[in-house]
Design a protein around this nucleic acid. Sequence first.
DNA 1: ATGAAAGCGCTAACAA
DNA 2: TTGTTAGCGCTTTCAT
Lengths: 373, 373
Amino acid sequence: MGFSNLKFSQGKGNIPILSLKYSIFELIITPAYKMSQPISIKDIARKFKCAPSTISRALNDHPAINIETRKTIQEYATRIGYQKNTLSLSLLNKQSKTLGVILPTMAHFHESSMVEGMEKILQPAGYLLNICVTNESHALERAYMDRLVANRVDAICISLSQETYDKKRHDHIDHAISRALPLIFMDRFYHAQNLDQVITDDYQGAFLATEHLIQMGCRRIAHLHGPKGITVSQQRFQGYQDCLRKYELPLLPELIAYVSFSAESAVEATITLLDHHPDGIFGVNDEVCFGAMKVIREKNIRIPDDIALVGFDDIPLAQFAYPPLSSVSRQSRKIGEETAQLFLAKINGQQENKQISLEPQFIVRESSRKRIF
Amino acid sequence: MGFSNLKFSQGKGNIPILSLKYSIFELIITPAYKMSQPISIKDIARKFKCAPSTISRALNDHPAINIETRKTIQEYATRIGYQKNTLSLSLLNKQSKTLGVILPTMAHFHESSMVEGMEKILQPAGYLLNICVTNESHALERAYMDRLVANRVDAICISLSQETYDKKRHDHIDHAISRALPLIFMDRFYHAQNLDQVITDDYQGAFLATEHLIQMGCRRIAHLHGPKGITVSQQRFQGYQDCLRKYELPLLPELIAYVSFSAESAVEATITLLDHHPDGIFGVNDEVCFGAMKVIREKNIRIPDDIALVGFDDIPLAQFAYPPLSSVSRQSRKIGEETAQLFLAKINGQQENKQISLEPQFIVRESSRKRIF
DNA sequence: ATGAAAGCGCTAACAA
DNA sequence: TTGTTAGCGCTTTCAT
């Protein structure tokens, strides 16, 4: 019998679907999409009394299948809510159309912007994101890495956790590299080799920020230093340090205070710093400057007249600080976009590894705009 | 021949691995993990000259397999960097150990905290998250939904996009509901039925905030109203409105201004409001209050003496606003945790749908603490 | 134009 | 203790 009862050869006005057995009846009484098991191509084949491969071809618009038949099958599939099982396709094609993203945290504007940037590029390309938050834990990073590999993601984009730096244990990274799996570092990278990475030039950003403070007349510039061992902290400190050197200003240890990336952590640190009378503060990020500003205001020290401030990241609230906070924009969203583009280039055969470094942009606001000049 | 050459029956001190053919040589010269194709169980079976099922059992610590053999195979697998292909398992077991999460945005503290809360519970349970950002687009929401279904995620946790509300097109939701697929609404929910949902009691939070302003002596309380049509905006407005009514204060249309959820959007709105001399402002979220505060400061109006302010969300920077911003905490992280727990309960057979409503917590800070009292 | 069969990687029921 | 086989859902040669 085969598929012939579907062809309109049986009569001109004979709409194919009408010749289906049971289908309409069943659709009304027990819609197939209410079944708890998802519908497979086999189910549809049974309904149409044909081979699964025919259904497959019809749904994929294969030209060999009669156009009318195609339409009929496609309509039916849509109506009963058939959804292709992409797991089986992933297995078959050896690509899951999914990317793994490993981040130390999600709490800051920077990370969520990166993710949004990635999605912007990857959604149209048909990719899904598996997002994993390590909370700066090395163990979690390893575990997630393994899981993503097991899930056969098409690439892993990673921003390393602090513990991975501290413990200097990179075997999970080395291991991933030795696979065919593309690995792209975002932001916090792996020093050992020239791997794929997308970062902002934190060094340059910090240099610009410090230089600006110097140009505003600051001579005792303090630094709220990020957690030790993290690339971004180091780079920003280095930029700060080198800029001081260039302008022949001393690097005073008492003007360096360590913080985590939170406003809260900057309170204590700033109190300590104030004992040494800085006339400018360069913070490792904007949150930290919010913390510093609060302390400074409470001591009735004027910003920027007595102390000028510059942050990093240019979070949306920076311009709503009191006074509005000068900051270095690291183009977080663009990092995500570039990472996504780099991935797409790689799967399209680009061989050589690429290090992309985005230009930071310095944004002047009142917190550092001294009126003496 | 079979597996016998692996057994130590050939001699006491004969470590099984030594009897493997080629393996050691190949490990040194061309480590299997450098191959571009991932290693499968079959590859290992070939190496050991045994059936794939034996390898499978060994790797899963099946008691039927000789303990020595198990160890040997496991060690070998680890060394060559074998990673189970979980796609095939997902296909087999009809569960992917992955959850879909659809969010309108990622840019705010609230959403990223929810995600962190989910991960905290779900990572130990072995689940991965597919995170999708709709950017408030209905079309994207549909597309992501389909993709997640196609990927056979074990559940979808969703916070509806604004467009879905505006267009009142819920067929993709209805469609998902009609599948066996668990669907949990976070935060912004679907009114039509008693589905699974985890929300904070926005109404109550808004009521508390407004009541507090009234108790602080405010009589002309303005509201920075969130985007129309969004559940949270409506709920918060309702709480504000009902509280005014309870205290027999009039609801003045000129004291309502519409904003999006950004500080930026509050600038214009606040300027308009100030023409009508409010003595208190309840903002739909904290960002919006940052915007309002900037405008108010620039007009040299005192906070809280002339105008008291209360926000919503209690973002980490709220206490670092100038002055520190009173706010309603909606326990974002807990929403994520509860959502994850609800999911786990569901797959463990909990049948009835559940509506979880978390208690908001009001936090008083200087922005609303009038000294007149 | 359609069907049959193999196979992606893995597990589990059944045999041996 | 180990092997054989079937099958999860789909696509794709190779037949017909």
